[in-house]
């Protein structure tokens, strides 16, 4: 029996949409997939005409599809934005070097300017060296903290107004659950925001906020997009793994659960009097931080002093034992955001 697409009622259905479980044809799937992202962008007023937008490109499926779709929507709906690719080279042999090749091909295919910022040029350490130092237990902390800064610094170098990342609905739902489960109230109230915009920080947003991971894979598959699909060789921690399995099971029971988790996350409101960290600026490198020194500086100090656990466990205790971090000893170049004034106006 030939099944027809329930959206157009004409063409032959070839997929079952993971989000709605509707049977759809290829063209209708492309259309709804792209339009949902467009709606998300328009409804949250993500872009202004003339914005320079950097796509955080890893070469993986999310960022590859993001680059493709943003370029397409920018032309279709005339957002009038200028797109760039921004890649971070963490220095992971056998993983990042290969995926960066994909990004370089994407640059050719989509004809977008590309900037690569590497950990070794910024911090003097690459991930291979860090793993050698700290082992496989907390390496993801280093990588995550360093990448966030690296993206902002790369954006400053490119002089862009805005960074978009490929975080999809599954990632955000997973983060909501993670933050509940580890009691991270401050991040819980932030993690569902589609666009973060501190005064000191470059606007950062997630156009895939409501896009299902499976549909991104599906889109990349049918569009035959060129992406890199190997998991990082330094495996992620197991607690998050449990949460991810749980989320996939939830999706299996009821596909709307992913959006419902995000929806719930947005509705959470904190009691008055719950203490939240106050955001300030790192005394050493000038990057936003809720402590005296930003996490990257503490982690880096730990690496340089041969105390890799410094930024992982009880930092204050460690500092008491091994001596404080001296001020003004810039190991990471000073963070200067030229856009900060204009950014805050736009928000």
């Amino acid at each position: 029996m030939v099944r027809t697409c329930v959206i157009c009622n004409k063409e032959r259905a070839i997929i079952k949409r993971p989000k709605t479980r509707q049977q759809a044809c290829r063209e209708c799937f492309y259309y709804v997939f792209e339009t949902e992202i467009h709606n998300t962008i328009i409804d949250s007023k993500l872009f202004n005409k003339g914005d320079k937008v950097a796509i955080a490109a890893s070469g993986g499926k999310d960022s590859t599809v993001l680059a493709y779709v943003l370029k397409l929507l920018n032309e279709r709906y005339q957002y009038g934005i200028e797109l760039f690719l921004l890649s971070i080279d963490e220095g992971i042999t056998g993983y990042r070097d290969d995926s960066l090749e994909t990004v370089k091909r994407n640059q050719q295919q989509y004809d977008l300017p590309l900037k690569i910022v590497s950990y070794s040029e910024l911090y003097g350490w690459n991930m291979d060296q860090i793993v050698k130092e700290v082992g496989l237990k907390n390496n993801c902390t280093f990588c995550g903290v360093f990448r966030r800064q690296a993206l902002d610094r790369g954006a400053v170098m490119l002089e862009v107004d805005h960074i978009v990342t490929g975080h999809n609905a599954d990632d955000i739902a997973e983060t909501v659950l993670m933050n509940i489960m580890r009691g991270d109230i401050a991040r819980l109230s932030r993690c569902t925001e589609i666009c973060t915009n501190g005064d000191e920080c470059i606007r950062r947003s997630k156009p895939f906020k409501y896009t299902y991971e499976k549909e991104i894979v599906m889109y990349a598959y049918f569009k035959k997009l060129d992406y890199f699909s190997t998991e990082c060789i330094y495996s992620p921690n197991s607690y998050r793994g449990h949460v991810r399995t749980f989320l996939k099971d939830l999706e299996g029971i009821r596909s709307i659960a992913i959006i419902d988790i995000i929806h719930s996350g947005e509705a959470f409101e904190l009691k008055k009097g719950v203490k939240l960290p106050i955001q300030g600026v790192c005394k050493r490198c000038g990057y936003i931080s809720s402590n005296e020194f930003c996490k990257a500086c503490v982690l880096l100090e730990g690496l340089n002093r041969g105390l890799p656990k410094l930024g992982i466990g009880k930092t204050n205790k460690m500092l008491k034992k091994y001596g404080n971090m001296p001020e003004g000893m810039a190991t990471i170049p000073k963070f200067m955001n030229k856009n900060s004034d204009s950014v805050s106006e736009q928000c």
Binding site: T141, G144, R148, T175, P236
Partner: peptide, 12 residues
């Protein structure tokens, strides 16, 4: 995906 949201969980 490991991201910035991953502050370390330490289960001693």
């Amino acid at each position: 995906m490991c991201s910035i949201e991953d502050s370390p969980i330490i289960f001693d």
